Computed example of a mutant assay.
Amino acid sequence: MKVFLASFEHLEQVSQLFDRYRVFYQQSSDLEAARNFLEERFQKSDSTLLVASYRGKIVGFTQLYPSFSSVSMKPVWILNDLFVEELYRNQGVAKLLMNAAENLARETGVIRITLATQGSNIAAQSLYKSLGYSQQEEFYHYALQV
């Protein structure tokens, strides 16, 4: 299993996995839209996409978006997406991706990685806790749909 930064050359494989990720979160399959979305991320370089590959096949990914902490005046990453192909789950792939994200964050001066997951996603919560992530209860998170 190898984990590396994805590039434009991986667009087709990652798009298929990204589409399945969206379906996992009860969205309609739309491979063309998934491809267009990721193509735009690559073109604008506005996210970091790490992929896990097994024998040349991309089997998992995590996508990180840059943000900043005004208080610390340092960069922050928002880990928005983490997905592993069903056949490769429970084999440490998600942990490899998370560790690669942490290592890259340290190498690039990122002060923290933030993430959120559904309350029902017990497997993800267990993974995050095992890697040292803590639930941040001192802040209320709000969202406005526009």
Rank of each mutant, 00 (worst) to 15 (best):
M1K: 11
M1E: 09
K2C: 08
K2N: 15
V3R: 08
A6R: 03
A6G: 09
S7M: 13
S7K: 13
E9D: 13
H10A: 07
L11E: 01
L11H: 03
E12M: 12
E12N: 15
V14I: 07
V14D: 00
S15G: 15
S15Y: 06
S15L: 12
Q16Y: 14
L17I: 11
V23M: 15
V23D: 03
Y25T: 06
Y25V: 05
Y25M: 04
Y25C: 06
Q26M: 11
S28Y: 11
S28N: 13
S29Y: 02
S29C: 09
S29M: 05
D30I: 01
D30A: 10
R35E: 12
N36A: 15
N36P: 13
N36K: 15
N36G: 14
F37W: 15
F37D: 08
E39D: 14
E40I: 14
Q43W: 15
Q43M: 14
K44N: 13
K44P: 05
S45W: 15
S45H: 15
D46N: 15
T48H: 04
T48L: 13
T48F: 01
V51W: 00
A52S: 13
S53E: 14
Y54M: 11
Y54I: 14
K57H: 13
I58H: 09
I58Q: 00
V59Y: 02
G60D: 06
G60H: 11
G60L: 13
G60M: 09
G60N: 09
F61I: 01
F61H: 04
Q63L: 11
L64Y: 10
L64H: 06
L64W: 08
L64S: 10
F68V: 10
S70P: 01
S70I: 09
V71K: 10
S72H: 10
S72P: 00
S72E: 11
K74D: 02
P75T: 04
P75G: 06
P75W: 05
V76Q: 03
W77Y: 02
I78M: 09
L79M: 10
N80S: 12
F83Y: 15
F83L: 04
V84A: 02
Y88D: 14
Y88T: 05
V93E: 07
V93I: 14
V93K: 02
V93T: 05
K95E: 14
L96P: 06
N99V: 10
N99C: 03
A100N: 03
A100G: 06
A101P: 04
N103K: 15
R106I: 05
E107S: 04
E107M: 05
E107P: 00
G109Y: 03
G109Q: 05
V110L: 06
V110G: 09
T114L: 08
T117K: 03
Q118G: 06
Q118R: 10
Q118M: 10
G119T: 02
S120C: 08
S120Q: 14
N121E: 01
I122M: 04
A124R: 01
Q125D: 04
Q125S: 09
Q125M: 05
S126N: 14
L127M: 04
Y128W: 03
Y133R: 09
E137T: 12
E137A: 09
E138H: 14
F139W: 11
F139I: 15
F139G: 01
Y140W: 12
Y140L: 12
H141A: 05
Y142F: 11
Y142M: 12
A143R: 13
Q145G: 13
Q145I: 12
